[in-house]
Amino acid sequence: MDSENIIVKTALQTIDIEARTLRRLKKSIDDSFVQCVEAIYTSPGRLVVTGVGKSALIAQKIVATLNSTGTPAVFMHAADAIHGDLGMIRSADLVMCLSKSGETAEIKVLVPLVKYLGSKLIAMVGKKKSYLGTQADYLLHTPVAQEADPNNLAPTASTTAQAAMGDALATALLALRGFSPEDFAQFHPGGSLGKQMYLRVGDLYPRNEVPAVRETASLQEVILEMTAKCLGGTAVTGVNGQLLGIITDGDLRRMLEKSPRLDHLQAKDIMTAKPKTIEHDALAVKAMEILRRHSITQLIVLKDQQYVGMIHLHDLVKEGLV
């Protein structure tokens, strides 16, 4: 068999084995799972998640998911726990141990110590009748018929099952808490998803210049204002400062194509009346929607129906909203 066939066959076999593992995992969403979720939900303390080897890596991922969805959690490596890190556990905390076999030496040392501290123990384990499985107060069963590697040795299907069970746990808790998109944004202020929920036009447009010309401004004045303010456009205002229109690079190009004479042109002859606008307190993602819908690159910003500035597509790109 050539190398290409070996690669494809092994990869497909891996996916098939892990898919079967996940299908079997559905049977573990039972009364024991419900009790575990309710225990975490009602706990006055945190969830301390621990493990060794690859299970420790999955434990860290579960902690990250829980914290980002409203469930306070911390990671504790099982090997470090018995060398001082047990000090992070309080009696009100729940401790969740991840292990495929439930028989590792570190887990056997850790379990009695957790119980001595007065914390309840959750086992996420592949074997119910293992040491960890029988000692736990709550059980999350992650059975694995075989690992996905050809030697049935490397943690593959087992870690997939642990990760999926952790996601099931986190999303069930999220649903119980009524965790909203606004809550998600609060925990993700630096990410694009979070910014979509809290970043407003008013946070962006003040960074820009405020290009504006009177309706009687000459073509030269219009071009100078547009190039000086570097937003690809300028607002056109009336005698009382009211918004009359906008002139963009596109308006200038169209005017140059159709007008034989330029010396007599004024801003009011070039502008697009009734330009697209957005209120200063609107979400920035709303501005992006308008720009995309109308294939434009700048929006007039209004505050109390008065022109206060302009927001450009580049402002939104810089914030990662594209």
Rank of each mutant, 00 (worst) to 15 (best):
M1N: 07
D2E: 15
S3L: 12
N5S: 13
I7V: 14
V8L: 15
V8K: 09
K9S: 15
Q13M: 11
D16K: 13
I17V: 15
E18R: 03
A19I: 13
R20Y: 10
L22W: 12
L22A: 11
R23P: 11
R23L: 09
S28F: 11
V34D: 15
C36H: 00
E38T: 01
T42I: 04
T42V: 06
S43W: 02
P44C: 02
V48Q: 01
V49Y: 02
V52S: 09
G53Y: 14
K54T: 10
A59R: 02
I62P: 02
T65C: 13
T69W: 10
F75A: 01
M76Q: 11
M76A: 15
H77E: 11
I82P: 13
D85I: 09
G87A: 05
M96W: 15
S99H: 04
S101H: 06
G102V: 05
E103R: 12
T104G: 04
L113E: 08
V114C: 03
Y116M: 14
L117P: 03
I122G: 01
A123K: 06
K127F: 12
Y131G: 03
T134S: 15
T142Y: 02
P143W: 07
A145N: 10
L153T: 08
T159P: 01
T160P: 00
A161I: 08
A164M: 12
A164C: 14
G166M: 03
D167R: 03
L176C: 07
R177V: 01
F179E: 05
F184P: 01
F187V: 05
H188L: 05
G191I: 06
R200H: 12
V201P: 07
D203Y: 11
D203T: 09
N208W: 05
E209I: 14
A217R: 01
L224H: 11
L224T: 15
K229T: 12
C230P: 08
G232V: 05
A235S: 05
T237W: 06
G238V: 10
Q242Y: 10
Q242A: 13
L243V: 03
D251M: 09
L252A: 02
R253K: 07
R254A: 09
M255A: 14
L262N: 08
L265Y: 04
T272A: 09
A273R: 15
H280D: 10
L283C: 08
A287I: 07
M288R: 07
I290T: 11
I290K: 08
R292F: 13
R292S: 10
H294A: 14
S295R: 14
I296H: 02
L299D: 00
I300M: 06
Q306V: 14
Q306W: 15
M310P: 00
H312I: 05
L313N: 05
L313F: 08
H314W: 03
K318M: 13
